[in-house]
């Protein structure tokens, strides 16, 4: 069985070319949206969304502080979703495939930030001449073209060979490995949440975490329902907070 040439090329272009746009690329390269895109291509939107969003769960709460990306959700989605859809894998298996590629993707980010040092020094020299045009190119055109050229080939090769390799692995892996990996798939989202708790979870506000956690466990509320309560709670606290400030001024 061979890979799909056109699809692999599409994935490579989708990943490589679409770098600019703060937040915009993180939206259309989020596994949730990628699930929709590949779902349309494979003619199974429902399954695409389910697989994409299962991968999305791994990366909730993962914040790239100081642009130190702990993992690359775009890479995870672009590789794993087409493999899962073409091989008819379930969401758990797709998550397992996504994880290593999510980590591999951070390599590109680090490579980009190393190569950009060269453009930075070039911009330094152009600043001496007051050449704004070239500095502008160092900010957009050069890093963009360079990174696209560098990324497009490896992504293409991985996407092209991926389905065959994945099928081979799935056929020959013992059940405790696949079973164990799907257990891991259930636990991995915990990393993102734990990262957030580490960053903003002072002990004074940690009870709010437990309230929401056990609202889910005991009442079985879904995310949308809890968001409604969460926003109301936040507004109450905000207005109470501002009133207190106002009161202090009058005293």
């Amino acid at each position: 069985m061979t890979g799909n040439f056109g699809l692999a090329l599409f994935s490579a272009i989708l990943y490589a070319v679409a770098i600019p746009g703060y937040g915009l690329s993180s939206a259309y390269k989020s596994p949730a949206t990628l699930g929709l895109i590949y779902g349309i291509i494979f003619g199974d939107i429902t399954q695409g969304l389910i697989i994409g969003c299962s991968i999305q769960l791994l990366y909730l709460g993962v914040v790239a502080t100081g642009n130190n990306m702990p993992s690359d959700q775009a890479m995870a989605g672009i590789i794993a979703i087409p493999i899962a859809l073409s091989q008819g894998l379930d969401a758990q298996m797709a998550v397992t495939i996504a994880v290593p590629f999510g980590i591999l993707g951070t390599f590109f980010n680090n490579m980009k930030r190393s190569i950009n040092i060269w453009f930075l020094h070039y911009a330094d020299r152009k600043a001496e001449e007051g050449n704004v045009k070239e500095i502008n190119r160092c900010a957009v055109l050069y890093p963009w073209l360079f990174m696209s050229a560098l990324q497009i080939i490896p992504i293409f090769i991985i996407s092209y060979l991926g389905p065959t390799a994945a099928q081979f692995l799935i056929d020959y892996l013992p059940s405790w490995v696949t079973g164990g990996l799907s257990v891991a798939g259930g636990v991995l989202p915990a990393i993102g949440f734990a990262l957030m708790i580490t960053q903003i979870g002072r002990k004074e506000i940690l009870p709010y975490f437990f309230i929401a956690y056990f609202m889910v466990q005991y009442m079985g509320l879904n995310t949308m329902a809890i968001s409604v309560f969460g926003v109301c709670l936040a507004l109450i606290l905000f207005f109470n907070g501002s009133q207190k400030k106002g009161g202090e001024v009058h005293e």
């Binding site: 989202p189 949440f193 979870g201 956690y213 995310t223 969460g230 709670l233 606290l237 907070g241």
Partner: peptide
Amino acid sequence: NVASILGIFMMGALSGSYV
């Protein structure tokens, strides 16, 4: 302060649903 409370609250909800 309120944003971090909302953030940690939502993390609780997501943890409960998805881990």
